[in-house]
């Protein structure tokens, strides 16, 4: 019997299935009673996506995680991107990023365009100062931004290896609760997702939180209204 068949047979035996033999310990279980799953939790928040309350909460949570957050008017975005990346030296951008965002970038900031047919190596990314991406959705209650690998966010490695991540989030992408965010992501669950809540951190030393370990040590969120 293959391991697959054997494990599935044991599971059936554990659940009282007849003719399935016993588990490794020689046991036969009983069938569990059918379960009704209650869903009394909040499926939506109190406030609309992108509302003032939701944006304020997102900023509060991100700042609590020691992320740098700026509220930006759409027209000012290229200037703020330029200012934020001024010291970076070099920046990697995903293939589908809005080129206008880079419009004001100083000349001495080198732009690497990551592309499916010409991906940067991990070592190239390690030598790059920053990464600039868009986002898919954000959740204010937990201060979480989700990237799902679409062309304006790029593959996972580019937002991971450089030490500074500048992430542009549109106000209308911000929902209040996790269920709202999950339901936006669900139609494309197969996309590789990274949920980001602040810069990398650890609580492994005396359960004391320290920001900045292996992922980007600095997270800038540019919240565009």
């Amino acid at each position: 019997m293959s391991a697959r068949e054997d494990v599935l047979r044991r599971v059936r035996a554990a659940l009282g299935g007849s003719g399935a033999g016993t588990t490794a310990a020689g046991k036969v279980g009983t069938a569990p009673a059918p379960v009704e799953v209650p869903r009394a939790y909040r499926a939506t928040g109190v406030h609309e996506a992108g509302s003032a309350e939701v944006l304020e909460q997102l900023v509060d949570r991100l700042v609590d995680y020691r992320a740098h957050v700026q509220r930006v008017a759409a027209d000012d975005l290229p200037a703020v991107v330029a200012e934020t990346l001024a010291e970076a030296g070099s920046v990697v951008v995903p293939p589908g990023l809005d080129e206008a965002w880079l419009g004001d970038l100083p000349r001495d900031v080198v732009v690497h365009r990551d592309a499916p047919d010409a991906p940067l190596s991990a070592l190239d990314l390690d030598a790059t100062g920053a990464v600039l991406t868009a986002a898919r959705v954000a959740c204010s209650e937990t201060g979480t931004i989700v990237l799902d690998g679409e062309p304006d966010q790029g593959r996972r490695a580019i937002s991971l290896v450089p030490d500074v991540h500048v992430c542009v989030v549109r106000a209308d992408q911000v929902v209040e609760t996790i269920p709202e965010a999950v339901r936006i992501l669900a139609p494309h669950a197969e996309r590789p997702q990274t949920w980001i809540s602040g810069p990398s951190a650890t609580s492994d030393i005396e359960l004391d939180r320290v920001e900045g370990v292996h992922g980007p040590r600095t997270l800038h969120v540019l919240l565009v209204a």
Partner: peptide
């Protein structure tokens, strides 16, 4: 924490 810093989801 309200949310851990990173969660990775992948499918195949």
């Amino acid at each position: 924490e309200r949310m851990n810093p990173y969660t990775s989801l992948w499918t195949g």
